[in-house]
Structure formats: structure tokens, C-alpha cells
């Protein structure tokens, strides 16, 4: 499960390249890409019609509808790679949405409100981080505590659905650039832009920085040996990982508020599980130590596509979505299990 490619100077270059391409580490992600392709093929066959199923419009809609989930999943990927879990993100989304909905009518400028919303997320993540890093409390229970905290605070702010009528916010939500026409129309909005930028930042942070390496090292566990051998120091990595996840949850809260133009204390119940499911479908291993940000992006797309396929199939009832998501998750973890079975 190690993430280091051992530099083999003696073998010829082409063999190294070949081994890299067929690396077992990529197998879970290959599985999720395969799932995505399969779903697209099924979609194309069943609902292709004249204009086709996989159109720029479909991709654009998927990104627009799931941008908040993508942001949550990016933060969650960091946490899960360290072997932790963050159950608080759904409640944080509800809290930030309500904070935005209450602060904007008070006349505070939009940038300040948005900054406050993000910082609330970071603060929630910091609380989890301190509990996990300093007090050695299990991530599950620490983040569960903060989930109740955030949900309780959201309930204190308001138990009604508050519409966000602020003009600046509305124009931010409505802002978009469109390319192409009809089925080829690709609509780029603010939420999608934020999610894509965070994807790039997360990718860089996880795969090209010392911090990212340490995240993997912590996740491998091995009583810290892995980190020592890598010449890294764990330091406060675990704490920062939760701050990242909390910050992502804060940003996702803003994106969700942009999407729904309202704040409500009951939003985001179970959203943390959506994010975890997307991360797992994306090939990240829940025990920690392995996974990729781009895999997570694929996972979110698969997750979104499930819903598109179900609605196209005419199974509008909510229960089919749930059963189908469960079934896809089941098939995926079993496949992943067999792909990774020989590694242990």
C-alpha cells in the first residue's frame, strides 16, 4: 500500500514505464474509470437518440449539480488517506448556509460574509483536528461530536428555511458563461469554477508537496515507521487534514447555498455519507494510505451519473436511487476487494 515508487536504476527505462502504467496502485481508480465508462456506454445505448447521451451539456449539468459534493469529497479524500473520517461535513454545510442567510440581510458586505462562512468550516475542522491530534480521540467519534455541534448551532440560528435574497449573492449564483448551442451547450458557473480550482489545488497539494506525502505516510500507519523512512515528520499533519476538510465543507456550504439560494437547518443530513461514498467509489481505501484526488473526481461523476440514469430510466421514486446507489457501492467494493486482495 506504499505510495513510493522505488527508484530502480538497474532496469531499463521502458520496463519502468510499463510497470508504472500497470501499477496495482492504479487498479482501484481504473475500476472507477471503468464504471464511469460503462455507465456512459449504457446511457448512450439506452438514451442516445439523435443528439447522443454524452454531450457537453450532460457534463456541464453533472458538474453544476455536484460541485458542492466534489468540494466535500476533495476534503474528505485528504482525511480518508490519513485513515480518518469526517462525519461533520453535512452539518457544516447546513450551518454555513444558514449563517450566510442570516448575515447578508444584516447589511454585511458579501466578501466578508463568505469569508466568515469559510472560516466557520475551518473552525469546525480545527476542533476535530485538535481532538484527534492532541487528545487522541478516534476521528469517528470526534467528528460525530462536531457533527452534533454544527447541527445544534444551525438549529440555534434558525429552524426555518431562509431564502437568500441578497442581490450580490443572487448575481453570483446566476453568473455563468455558456459555450455552444443546445445539446453542445456547456455552461460554466461560479460553483463549478470554484470546485475545479479546488480540484487543481487539492491535486497539487496531495501529489506534489511534502505535506501531501506526509498525508500518505500517516495513513500507512506502521507506527510512524513509514514516515521516518520517508524522511518526513508527522507533526501536525493530522490536525491540518481536518482543517482542510472543514474548510472544504465551509466552501461547499457556500456552493450549496448558491445552488439552492437558501439556508435550512435540515440540509445536508447524510451528505457526509454521499461524500464518503464518492471517495470510496473513486478508489480511495478507507483504511488509509492510498487514493487519488482525480479518482475522487471520477467517483463524484459516477455518483452524479447514477442519479441521471435513474431519472432517465423513469424510476423517479427516491427509493430506487438509494437502492441503486447501495448496489453500485456493493459491486464496486467487491470488485475493489478482489483487485486489491493479493496485495496483503
Amino acid at each position: 500500500m506504499t505510495t513510493l515508487t522505488s527508484p530502480t536504476s538497474t532496469t531499463p527505462r521502458w520496463r519502468t514505464a510499463l510497470r508504472r502504467a500497470t501499477d496495482r496502485r492504479y487498479m482501484p481508480v481504473a475500476g472507477s474509470v471503468l464504471t464511469l465508462v460503462l455507465m456512459l456506454v449504457v446511457g448512450e445505448m439506452r438514451y442516445g437518440g439523435s443528439s447522443g447521451f454524452l454531450t457537453p451539456r450532460l457534463v456541464s449539468n453533472l458538474l453544476v449539480d455536484n460541485s458542492y459534493l466534489l468540494v466535500l469529497a476533495i476534503g474528505m479524500t485528504f482525511v480518508i488517506i490519513t485513515g480518518g473520517i469526517d462525519l461533520s461535513v453535512g452539518a457544516v454545510v447546513a450551518l454555513t448556509g444558514l449563517v450566510i442567510a442570516t448575515l447578508l440581510p444584516m447589511g454585511l458586505p458579501l466578501p466578508v460574509v463568505l469569508l466568515v462562512a469559510v472560516l466557520i468550516g475551518s473552525a469546525m475542522g480545527l476542533i476535530i483536528g485538535v481532538m484527534v491530534q492532541v487528545f487522541d480521540i478516534q476521528p469517528f467519534i470526534a467528528s460525530l461530536g462536531v457533527m452534533f455541534l454544527a447541527r445544534g448551532l444551525a438549529n440555534v440560528v434558525s429552524v426555518n428555511s431562509l431564502a437568500i435574497t441578497d442581490e450580490g449573492f443572487a448575481s453570483l449564483a446566476a453568473w455563468n458563461v455558456t459555450f455552444g448551442e443546445k445539446a453542445n451547450q456547456f455552461r460554466l458557473n461560479a460553483a463549478m469554477l470554484v470546485a475545479l480550482v479546488l480540484l487543481i489545488v487539492g491535486f497539487y497539494l496531495l501529489h506534489y508537496t511534502r505535506f501531501g506525502r506526509t498525508v500518505y505516510g500517516v495513513g500507512v500507519g506502521d507506527a510512524g515507521n513509514a514516515i521516518d523512512l520517508m524522511g518526513l515528520r508527522a507533526g501536525r499533519t493530522v490536525l491540518w487534514v481536518y482543517v482542510i476538510s472543514g474548510t472544504c465543507a465551509g466552501i461547499a456550504g457556500i456552493l450549496f447555498a448558491l445552488y439552492t439560494k437558501s439556508g435550512y437547518n435540515l440540509t445536508g443530513i447524510g451528505m457526509e455519507l454521499d461524500a464518503i461514498a464518492a471517495v470510496v467509489i473513486g478508489g480511495t481505501i478507507l483504511t488509509g494510505g492510498g487514493g487519488y484526488i482525480l479518482g475522487t473526481a471520477v467517483g463524484v461523476m459516477v455518483y452524479g451519473l447514477i442519479q441521471v440514469l435513474i431519472s432517465r430510466e423513469g424510476l423517479g421514486e427516491a427509493w430506487w436511487t438509494k437502492i441503486f446507489i447501495g448496489a453500485v457501492l456493493l459491486v464496486f467494493v467487491i470488485v475493489q476487494r478482489f483487485l486489491t486482495a493479493r496485495r496483503r
Partner: peptide
């Protein structure tokens, strides 16, 4: 040999659908 968290999460998500 699936991790308990994810193994039981499958039924958590699908189970509510089954009940419905």
C-alpha cells in the same frame, strides 16, 4: 473481507430504499 464501515454503509443507504 470488506471493511465494516463501508460494508454496513451499503445497507445503511440501500436499506432505507428497501424500507420505502
Amino acid at each position: 473481507g470488506i471493511q465494516p464501515f463501508i460494508a454496513t454503509m451499503i445497507l445503511m443507504v440501500a436499506g432505507r430504499g428497501i424500507a420505502m
